[in-house]
Design a protein around this nucleic acid. Structure first.
Lengths: 247, 247
DNA sequence: CGGCTGATTGATCCCGGTCAAATGAGGTGG
DNA sequence: CCACCTCATTTGACCGGGATCAATCAGCCG
């Protein structure tokens, strides 16, 4: 499902993403590629990569596959607080804190680079463009998190789901995971419900509404956006918070 | 309402907070105090300090007063995505991004230190403990943002409001703004509604429920928590995500 | 074939939104 | 000192978006 290419192209989504945030130097790219090559790991689907309360000693850079960050309440209620997509970095600099405040689970088999703290610190100490790119990653993550707050707090179910789909579409695009107007979409309706703060039942009905309005197709783990403009306007979506293009 | 002390004690909340995140060196503290002294500014209540879309060229460190970060939708719906309290830093490193994705408004008159980008970069370049403390600030902010997501997405109104009050109480405590079990609480019910994703009417009723259950007192801009344990358990509150104590 | 997970549907209920109005608490100018 | 305005809080009545409960259905896998 996610075969690892035999050449160095695995690092491509990462380089593309970081380079879009902050122009990377050639040496920076080279050392990143080396670190990624040396730290490559595989995990299956449905595994917890990190659990709330764990200490973090390395930085994980996602090369392929989908993950989600989530938190749970004592009684089992769960909220997905973000997704992590290929090219993104799970927890740059998080080792500065004593432990992590949320869990991260794989939704698909995942290939990632596990870069140990000392190695990561060397990487960012040697090249300022790389350091700043990772900081931008972190800052953009914060911005996404804020947008999720208004999504959860102030949008209606239909707007909320449409907004999430728009966001994921935009985040997949720069790393080359959109083909035509479709993309792999390995997220169950339960996951979508937990990401939008809705019940599974209502999420299902909301998806049907989006489908029957001709905005999207979603079946067999493939999402096709048939009317992006309409989807954006029902979502009240504006992509500026994703910082997809450099200043 | 917020008189500026004549001595250097203005910087105290900031030093206390950063030092709790990351042990600061003595020189670090000295240079921080200098930067704060030289950049001190005042603003009135109800002003926008920054608006969504603005470019950011400096870092603002809050010395006294309350602010909120918020986002709005085209049709006027508003979500407060976080509060900014004395000792906290508005936007460390945010100048790395082309513009800001949200607005920040003052809720009270505010005294803050405006540290220009070059000066800030010098500050963090000279002292690693200061640099890391500011990064911790940013990371903790992300963690708070995630907790807000589960608050908005998965907690009931009563739990939500209780949770917000617990959080603010905990955040005010380390900077010495809790006296006994009370604190100044300069937030209107409309603000609280926008922070919890509720309507003003329902927020009002929820506060009444908390009051009549004997958990809180709230009048004349003063919050008293009369039963912290009960408040915490109705909120399902756990303060770990605030990282109030060093590892 | 039985068991499991995920998607779908129907029926009912309730949490919280909306609308509308009243009350109160400063603040200001005559 | 009072009339008046504005902004925040409070209350009441009603409504609706989305939750909950409970089946059913469709793949998939051992």
């Amino acid at each position: 499902m996610h075969p690892a290419p035999i050449d160095g192209s695995l690092a491509q989504p990462v380089i593309r993403r970081l380079n879009a945030l902050r122009r990377l130097s050639d040496e920076g790219i080279a050392s990143l590629e080396r670190a990624i090559r040396e730290g490559t790991q595989h995990v299956g689907a449905g595994e917890d990569l990190i659990c709330e309360g764990d200490a973090v000693h390395s930085v994980r850079i996602i090369l392929s596959g989908w993950l989600c960050r989530y938190k749970t309440l004592e009684d089992g209620r769960r909220q997905i607080v973000n997704f992590v997509l290929p090219g993104e970095t799970c927890d740059a600099y998080t080792y500065l804190l004593s432990m992590i405040d949320h869990s991260i689970a794989t939704l698909t088999p995942v290939v990632y680079a596990d870069v140990k703290r000392p190695q990561f610190e060397a990487l960012v100490a040697h090249d300022r463009s790389v350091a700043e790119a990772f900081w931008c990653e972190t800052l953009v993550n914060s911005a996404i998190q804020r947008e999720w707050a208004i999504n959860l707090g102030r949008r209606l179910a239909l707007e909320r789901v449409a907004h999430l789909l728009c966001e994921l579409y935009e985040r997949l695009s720069p790393v080359g995971l959109i083909e035509g107007n479709s993309c792999a979409f390995p997220v169950t309706q339960m996951d979508l419900a937990d990401a939008t703060g809705l019940s599974v039942v209502h999420l299902n009905r909301t998806l049907q509404e989006l489908r029957s309005s001709g905005l999207i197709l979603l079946r067999e783990r493939t999402l096709t956006i048939t009317d992006l403009n309409a989807l954006r306007s029902t979502a009240l979506f504006s992509p500026n918070y994703l910082y997809l293009h450099r200043a």
